[in-house]
């Protein structure tokens, strides 16, 4: 019997409650939508059918392509958020870390640094005036 069954727990369905939900960082900034979830065995090894398995990470980025077209993304291309960073699960999934601390937002950063920040006023706060 697993530990979770004895402790307080909430039963959810992965597709209904986690997949495709919005991930927010520690201050509530959007990070990504959940494209897929990685599951591993109890000690972090490959899943053995019927034996304890748990969610290890939220996957983003290229995982959307395989959700759309089928197939399996090569693990080297996974953009992962460790499940240990997940703090809360509600209508959004909230992390305990800042989005800049994650290694998956490269396209946002690229567009920001190469395009948007170079246009005059790109750093202007629209609510300030």
């Amino acid at each position: 019997m697993s530990d979770i069954e004895r402790a307080a727990r909430r039963v959810i369905d992965a597709r209904l409650h986690l997949l495709d939900r919005q991930v927010l960082d520690v201050v509530g900034e959007p990070v990504t939508a959940i494209d897929d979830l990685e599951i591993v065995g109890a000690d972090g090894e490959e899943v053995v059918p019927g034996r304890t398995a748990r969610v290890a990470a939220v996957l983003a980025g290229p995982a959307i392509v395989t959700r759309l077209l089928g197939g399996h993304p090569p693990p080297s291309r996974w953009e992962r958020i460790e499940w240990s960073h997940v703090e809360r699960v509600g209508t959004t999934v909230d992390l305990s870390v800042d989005r800049d601390a994650l290694d998956l937002d490269w396209s946002e950063r690229w567009v920001r640094d190469r395009v948007i920040a170079r246009i005059p006023g790109g750093l202007h706060d629209p609510e300030s005036d």
């Binding site: 900034e29 946002e108 950063r109 706060d125």
Partner: peptide
């Protein structure tokens, strides 16, 4: 587009804080 892909969006943010949305 931003909401589908989970990007940060919104006019209330500085453009640099919602870069792909503005692009």
């Amino acid at each position: 587009v931003a909401q589908y892909l989970g990007w940060s969006w919104g006019k209330f943010r500085r453009p640099a804080k919602a870069a792909r949305f503005h692009l």
